[in-house]
Amino acid sequence: MKLRFLGTNSQVGDCPTLYATDRDTYLVQGWKIFANDVLTQLTLSEGETAVEVPTELFEHLEKDGLPSGGLKRLEDPLMVLTPGGTYVVQGRAVTDHEALAQMSIPDYESVVEVSKAAITALLEEPRGADLQRRAQPAL
């Protein structure tokens, strides 16, 4: 899998990062999720995981020719807005050694692969309560 760096919102190279691939997908590198209250709200299929990233990370989609202005929808189960104002992004866990070798991934981060079509759908105008998809705060 060939990667094209789209961007990060960090000065250090090992923080949440967005890549485009040669497979019409995006790789989202983000923080591993350990909060049970968030994990219990996700339905992860075998081979899937989720990462947490700052919302600003998706501004880098503009470098791949997608419209600027950020995400306009949240779609279950792909993306959830946390009470802390970050996104939880769900996708296939990246295990491709060639792809992983092109990244600097600390132990507290992981990488998910999401289809370009799924991300593009999130850029469409919201319909109804799409933006209401939020992680519930812990009680």
Rank of each mutant, 00 (worst) to 15 (best):
T21R: 09
T21Y: 09
T21A: 06
T21G: 09
T21D: 05
T21K: 13
D22S: 11
R23K: 15
R23P: 01
R23I: 00
R23L: 10
D24S: 11
T25A: 14
Y26W: 09
Y26A: 06
Y26R: 00
Y26P: 00
L27G: 04
L27S: 10
L27M: 06
V28T: 07
V28F: 11
Q29C: 07
Q29W: 01
Q29K: 10
Q29F: 07
Q29G: 01
G30T: 08
G30W: 03
G30V: 01
K32C: 08
I33V: 14
I33E: 08
I33S: 06
I33H: 03
F34P: 02
F34T: 13
F34W: 04
F34D: 12
A35G: 01
A35K: 13
A35D: 10
N36L: 05
N36R: 14
N36G: 07
N36Y: 07
N36K: 13
D37L: 05
D37S: 02
D37W: 11
D37M: 02
V38A: 07
V38C: 00
V38S: 08
V38K: 02
V38Y: 12
V38Q: 11
L39G: 05
L39N: 15
L39Y: 10
L39P: 02
T40N: 12
T40H: 11
T40Q: 15
T40K: 04
T40G: 02
L42A: 10
L44C: 12
L44V: 14
L44N: 12
L44M: 06
L44K: 10
L44W: 13
S45I: 02
S45H: 10
S45M: 06
S45W: 08
E46S: 06
E46V: 09
E46G: 04
E46F: 06
G47T: 00
E48K: 14
E48H: 11
E48F: 03
T49R: 13
T49G: 15
T49E: 14
T49P: 02
T49H: 09
T49Q: 15
T49W: 05
A50M: 09
A50L: 10
A50E: 12
A50S: 15
V51C: 04
V51N: 05
E52N: 06
V53M: 03
V53P: 01
V53D: 05
P54T: 08
T55N: 00
T55Q: 14
E56K: 04
E56A: 14
E56P: 00
L57K: 04
L57Q: 09
F58V: 00
E59L: 11
E59Y: 04
E59I: 11
E59G: 06
H60E: 08
H60Q: 00
L61S: 09
L61M: 10
E62N: 06
E62H: 08
E62C: 04
E62R: 13
K63T: 08
D64T: 04
D64R: 04
D64S: 09
D64W: 05
D64N: 14
G65E: 09
G65K: 02
G65N: 13
